[in-house]
Simulated scan of single mutants.
Amino acid sequence: MGKVLVLNASYEPLNITTWRRAVVLLLKGKAEQLEYQKAELRTRFPIPTVIRLRYYVRVPYKEIPLTRRNILERDNHTCQYCYYKGDNLTLDHVNPRSRGGGDSWENLVAACVRCNVKKGSRTPDEASMPLLSKPRRPYSSLYFEIARSIRSGHHQEWQKYTIGI
């Protein structure tokens, strides 16, 4: 069966829940079904994969800590210069610390040791090493779980609802 992406009334990702909880929300009229699996429950009720709440829920903002683990997760454990994917990754400052670059979501990327040494104390432009993607702060901790599900090949239908995160 699996997990269900719950969207706020504004279509922003809010949570991931079980299919049972999603069915209860649908039956109570608190949500509407946007996507579903081809399989059905015994009652011929399609199993939801994406639902949207009918009423807006205000969610308090929660800061995501800037940690090595979160940077690697954001960058999908992939070197942002040469696409190497693996465990032997370091963190690289896009704007080097020697030039005033600090520790921030927008200035740290995952890099393999080889690329990190090759880039040295230069910017990506100076080293002719373009970044795979522009580093940015994730909007929510839900970002990591959604990204993992999409990358693993499960829940591809979630992708169109998560473009902005």
Rank of each mutant, 00 (worst) to 15 (best):
V94P: 00
V94T: 05
Q80F: 08
A111P: 03
N76V: 13
G102K: 15
H93M: 05
C79G: 04
V109I: 13
G100Y: 06
D87R: 11
I71H: 03
R99Y: 06
Q80E: 14
D87A: 12
T90A: 14
L72V: 07
Q80D: 07
D103R: 11
S98M: 13
N70I: 02
L89H: 11
G101Q: 04
P96R: 07
Y81D: 08
L108R: 02
T78A: 05
V113S: 12
R114Y: 13
C115M: 09
D92W: 02
C82R: 04
K85I: 11
A111C: 03
V109A: 06
N116S: 12
S98F: 12
G101M: 08
C79K: 02
T90P: 09
C112R: 06
E73I: 09
R97L: 05
Y81M: 07
V94H: 04
G101N: 02
T90L: 11
Y81K: 13
A110I: 09
K85G: 10
Y83F: 12
Y83H: 15
D75Y: 12
E106S: 02
D103Y: 15
A110S: 15
T67M: 00
Q80L: 10
R68T: 10
K85V: 13
T78D: 06
N116Y: 10
R114G: 07
L91W: 05
R114H: 12
R74I: 04
R68F: 08
V109G: 00
A110H: 07
K85R: 15
T78P: 01
P96N: 09
V113A: 12
D87Y: 10
D75V: 10
Y81Q: 11
H77W: 13
L66K: 03
R74K: 14
R114W: 11
R114I: 13
E106A: 02
H93F: 00
Q80R: 10
G102V: 13
I71N: 08
A111S: 13
E73R: 15
N76Y: 14
C79N: 01
E73N: 14
D92Y: 06
L89R: 08
L91E: 06
T67N: 09
S98A: 15
N76L: 12
T90V: 14
T78Y: 05
H77F: 09
L89P: 10
R114L: 11
V94Y: 06
C115S: 09
V117Y: 11
E73S: 12
W105V: 09
C82D: 00
T78G: 00
H77Q: 03
N88H: 12
P96I: 06
T78W: 07
C115Q: 10
A111F: 04
S104W: 09
H93P: 02
V113T: 13
V113L: 09
C82P: 00
N116R: 05
C112G: 08
N88Q: 08
P96G: 09
H93A: 04
E73M: 14
W105F: 05
V117S: 12
R68M: 01
N70R: 02
R68V: 08
T90F: 07
R69I: 08
Y84G: 01
R68D: 02
N116K: 10
N88E: 14
T67D: 01
C79D: 01
H77D: 02
R69V: 04
V109N: 06
C82F: 01
D75H: 14
N88L: 14
P96Y: 08
S98E: 14
G102Q: 11
Y83W: 14
